[in-house]
Each structure stands twice: as C-alpha cells, then as structure tokens.
Amino acid sequence: MMISKYLNDLTLLKNVEAIAIYSLNNDLIDSWCDPNFNSKVLDELSLHYFQVFATLDLSVQNFQEIVITHEKGHFYARILPDMLLIIVVKLPVEISLIRLIVNVKIIDLLNSKALQKGLKKYSTENKDFLNKNILDESEKEYLKKLEL
C-alpha cells in the first residue's frame, strides 16, 4: 500500500517490474510486483544487498546506492535510514529516471506514518545487519582484514 501511494510514479513506468521495502533486519515491509515477476527473487536480492552495503560500511565507504546491471535490466538498491529500497527494472530504461523519482518521492514516504508504523513492527536496533552465517571462508577473511 505504501509503495502504491508514495512511489506510484515508479509503478506507472512500464519497465519497472518490482519494488520492495525492507527493514534493516531484512523483514519485508511492503512490496509491489508486476504480475509476471517472481516475487521470491526479492528476498534473495535484499539479502545480497544487505551484505554488500554492510561490507561497504565496514570499509568506511558510504555508498547509498548500488545499481547492478544485467543483460535484461537493472537491480537498483538504495539504503535509507532504517530501510532498504529495491527496484527491479528491465531494459530499456534510464536508471537516472528511477533515481530522480526516488529522490523526489522518498521524502514523503520516509515521513509517512504508515512507514513509521511498519518499521516499529520490526526491531531496527541491530544496525550491524551483516549476516556472517552465510559467508564463506574467503569472505570471512576479507572482513577480518577490514575490521583490523
């Protein structure tokens, strides 16, 4: 409901396939999907993005946005206070249009009571959202070096 209300312009773009908002504990707060899109992909995507953002955070690189481009489109992720926004788009689409709409519309969403209520349901106290249980040995070693 929040996405339909506050990010409606994104859902109107014909090449936007899915939008999801997650709390920092990887709990889904709201999502919107094109009927042809497999929504299970979103959970997996969000987990990977959390890992990447958390690792960048450890290496003191303040990335707020990551765009992964593949042959059929883009995965766009924006880390925001207490939440992660994920947008799946297929080509052809200008990622700068997605960014512009997010920049303009996100403030109203962040200030909305609906989002605040949604976030309260999930604890956001744990700011270290890196899930170390799913890392392989080389990743653990890499993180160890970062923490030194």
Binding site: D9, L12, L97, I101, N103, V104
Partner: peptide, 17 residues
Amino acid sequence: QIEFQRNIYPKLKQYLL
C-alpha cells in the same frame, strides 16, 4: 540538490512518464 529536483519534477513528469 533535492530542492532542485523537487521543483522541476512536477513539470518534467508529463514528459518523462
């Protein structure tokens, strides 16, 4: 930056969407 984008977006929207 945000002010600029918010100011121009309503007019741009009809062309961009």
